[in-house]
Simulated assay, not measured.
Amino acid sequence: MRILVTGTAGFIGAALAQRLLARGDEVLGIDNHNDYYDPSLKEARLAQFVDHAAYTHLRADLADAEAVDRAFAQFQPQRVVNLAAQAGVRYSLKNPRAYVRSNLDGFLNILEGCRHGKVEHLVYASSSSVYGANRKMPFAVEDAVDHPVSLYAASKKANELMAHAYSHLYGLPTTGLRFFTVYGPWGRPDMSPMLFADRISRGEPIDVFNFGNHSRDFTYIDDIVEGVVRTLDHPAQPDPSYDAENPNPGTSNAPYRVYNIGNDQPVQLMRFIELLEQNLGRTVEKNLLPMQPGDVPDTWADVSALRRDVGYAPDTSIEDGVARFVEWYREYHGS
């Protein structure tokens, strides 16, 4: 198939592009290479596949409607995976306008491209952050997500609402995936696994928020990519059992779906740090601090809907995943 993937210089986008190329798809990747974090890491990810015969790279911003329209018209994708976004909960407190430009304006341009290009299926990145102040565990797609605690989370909830409008109005099949704490080789340097690994490897103290009482549904990158591909290959369909008088937020009478994609096995943050220390061969001091604004104490994905509909079955244990991450980390940094 011809598949347009946005964010292919990013963590998940680069891994997904390689998986699609390996199975024989033709991929157009779009990324704006912004400097939210070290652009050299983005270039290194791309270097793994940018010269593949079936891959074409476009350096463009999704908020540039003309560039996006031109990409759709020239490539004529059959399916689209939108992973590009301004990421980061904490950064959204400092630079909120970046989230409107990328996550709202940019996503609208993708929706318009899919609509006019008669795309068969749009899969897009949502986030576990949409659960916000919700404290019911595990988080399920049937739960209300009306109380975001960051603008980043609000922008991702807005994406789900925008997608539903296009599914309803134009029959565009859309599937939103709420990612839960993705980690692994080539991960983002602004996320805790890389931040902790950097400081542990240098023997420096690490800041641990919520006094170490966080738990996260850490999900290994390979399991995430497997779930994205399975979802992409199953275009959303109207739910024949949808009841408009008792609506299910995860489905619709339009071709629309929302799923959690996680490991369904939350891990205490202190356990994750312990595994990093074991694999890096060093223990460090922990500065136990209060929870930061916009953060949530715990996440846990109920992935039963994704298991049922596409056969999603994450199988990477936290012990194996951390060991593989540290192996890559040492090789990448030459240590």
Rank of each mutant, 00 (worst) to 15 (best):
V130W: 13
S126G: 07
S128F: 08
K136C: 04
S126V: 03
V123Y: 12
K118A: 15
C114W: 06
Y131P: 10
I110M: 15
M137H: 03
N134D: 13
N109H: 15
D143Q: 01
F107E: 11
E120Y: 04
C114L: 08
Y124I: 04
E112Q: 14
G106M: 15
G106D: 15
S128H: 05
G132R: 07
A133I: 03
H121V: 10
K118M: 11
P138H: 10
S129Y: 04
I110K: 09
V119E: 10
V119G: 13
L111A: 04
L108D: 12
E142A: 10
G106W: 13
P138I: 07
F139V: 05
D105I: 05
A140T: 05
N109E: 08
A125L: 06
V123A: 14
G117H: 03
L111P: 02
E142W: 00
Y131A: 13
K136Y: 07
R135S: 15
G117E: 01
C114A: 12
H116E: 08
L111W: 01
K118C: 10
R115Q: 15
Y131W: 11
F139C: 09
Y124W: 05
N109Q: 14
L122V: 09
G113W: 00
L122K: 06
E142H: 00
G117Y: 01
V130M: 09
E120R: 07
S127M: 03
G117P: 01
F107A: 08
L108R: 11
S126N: 02
G106K: 15
V119A: 12
E142R: 02
V141Y: 02
G117T: 00
S126D: 01
P138D: 09
E120V: 03
E112F: 02
K118W: 04
L122A: 13
S127W: 01
G113E: 00
V123I: 14
N134G: 06
K136Q: 13
F139G: 05
M137N: 04
H121D: 11
E120C: 05
N109K: 09
S129C: 14
D105M: 03
V141I: 09
S129E: 15
S129V: 06
E142V: 06
